[in-house]
Design a protein around this nucleic acid. Structure first.
Lengths: 197, 197, 197, 197
DNA sequence: AATGAATGAGTATTCATTCAT
DNA sequence: GATGAATGAATACTCATTCAT
């Protein structure tokens, strides 16, 4: 019946969806969700406004997808750090330096912060984000625990230390703006020194 | 007709303005600026919508005032810590424990984060906030420098350490949500231990 | 506190609401609900678009109010016929000639027909309209029954006859367009003759 | 490559066009023209959206075709009644009972009513429908006139009586809803009794 | 011819701001 | 000064129509 190539269609569709999410992530991170117009997202994704609705039912659904993808992406990232064949210090060093420069790191951090703190976000989403966040602390807590056993890192509850370290990175990332860079060329070693005995 | 008491009128006006800002701060911090309606602010401040415009010319002007007040309030707070008659450690301990529980601490942190990172905020305001932020690091840098001289705190650029510490606190404050508290009953001492030698 | 006159405000509000409904009824009857833009209603009611939403939450709510008012208006009308001090024939004659020329008769008929038959209308509303319609047949059935006892009207179930007569009038009203008038200057007597023995 | 059979192709095309119209008629009658999406029609006709535009240039053109076909269908129907070899009463009885149960009777009635009364329909179409309607009264007027000559039907302008009878049927058809059936199991004889002397 | 994704004009609804009282 | 209804510009979302495959 159809002269279409279903395989190809499906691929193309997934590809465009990804392209849309990528564009939406950055534009939403920069302006905030409510201040971002669908037209802004469309322009950034080089699509028409109408097309966006072939991929997502609403702006909110886009945001939800971004948040889920972002947390998944972060999880993959931190698990990669955990699986490195190297010392705990090197693992965290890899994590720190790479996440700081990772293309999506800033945007994911901003998005998740909004998802967690704004009452304009549906409560279920806030809940889901928070509980995934706690889950995602685990790999880092493992790395820190390894380091503690090796006598390299400070003692104390490893999950607490993970939370502190992640919060510090988030706080710093949220300050990643021109003025700051001038006074604070922070290195991963500088940041990690806080964890050292 | 009673002879008007102009002094009293002026005071009353200033008081209502303050009451309005206080209410606006919390409601905006919880929902985000664009998702907060003037009507929400009016309701929170127990005023009519029309009255708000007797105190501020626009929603943006309210936000600007909040941000300025918030940074001023923070400055006063951190300078109070600096001026305490006690050890550097105790100064930072006072700062840490008090800011965490300070009624406006959370709201100010959220507001300033938005003011710094969103492109929906006018560039001049973003600039002003960032440069005041850097300024406001100074008192804490002084405390840290004192502590370094006393051989208590880690070595290194004291402004960098101040930035790290402040970012950490901001990051943690932005995670101040039910789920987190359960796993991480962080104490100021735990947080400060990162700065110790 | 308020320098407003609450009594006056309330009156004015009710008046404007009525003016809005009146305008909406005619414009919606002529174009159909989905083809009528809120801007059309606003223009007809000499209001701004925004103001409409101070009186009704949505277009659908306006339609619902119209339908309810319309059926209420019809009920009042038919009960007035029933309560006349005259013969059954004269009662129906009064009903027939007055409803045909009644300013809102056409619009109410069109609106109710749409409310009953379109699946675009919420099922609950359709239900409510249909059951009120059946209810509203009663006064006419009474008049017909009176006439039957007086030996003037045809025999048979009076509710059935009422339904037939009302349907006939509705059908004729829905044909009330220029072209028809030319060929069919129907008189109430002509219409009523169908019921006579 | 099989040699194309142009005859067959043409037939198939006409057939699909018919199938499309049939589906469109019912779906539009139920929801109303503006509330019916092209996608709804496509789904009902088991075609793709794009295909529809191979048969009609626009939604409006579909509606126009429906209205024309519907009036043609009605004309054929009423002429069949006229041509029956039986008494005038039996002719109208056949007409009444068959149109009431005719599969498309309800849909055609609803569609034509909309075409006549809504200003959202182009004026030329409204005109055309009205004048064809008047034309289509003729066969029934003839039947009634026959009946009057035979002394069976009420006296009076036969076209007027035809209009009244048709309006009554339309009005009743537009009430063809569950609730009504329960209270009014109308028979053709009951309806026709109104015309009797 | 058939398909269904892409397009963008069109519309309901919201909300900052104004203004009559 | 205080009030809240009125205003209309702004924006999310829909859907008829087009078009690449």
């Amino acid at each position: 019946m159809s002269p279409r190539n279903f395989e190809k269609d499906k691929e193309l569709r997934a590809e465009r969806r990804q392209q849309l999410l990528e564009a939406a992530m950055h534009v939403i991170a920069r302006r905030g969700l409510p201040a971002t117009k669908i037209a802004d997202i469309a322009a950034a994704a080089k699509m028409s406004v109408g097309s966006i609705y072939n991929y997502f039912r609403s702006k909110e659904e886009i945001f939800q997808a971004l948040v889920e993808n972002g947390q998944q992406e972060y999880r993959t990232f931190v698990e990669e750090a955990l699986s490195l064949e190297s010392t705990p210090y090197e693992k965290l060093h890899w994590y720190t330096s790479n996440w700081l420069v990772y293309r999506n790191g800033w945007a994911i951090t901003v998005l998740l912060q909004y998802a967690r703190t704004s009452e304009a976000v549906p409560a279920e989403l806030t809940q889901a984000v928070s509980s995934r966040f706690i889950d995602n602390l685990r790999p880092m807590a493992s790395i820190i625990a390894e380091g503690q056993q090796a006598g390299v890192f400070k003692d104390g509850d490893s999950t607490q230390l993970a939370l502190i370290y992640v919060s510090m990175m988030e706080g710093l990332i949220l300050h990643d703006i021109p003025g700051i860079h001038e006074i604070a060329a922070l290195t991963p070693d500088r940041m990690l020194s806080l964890l050292l005995k």
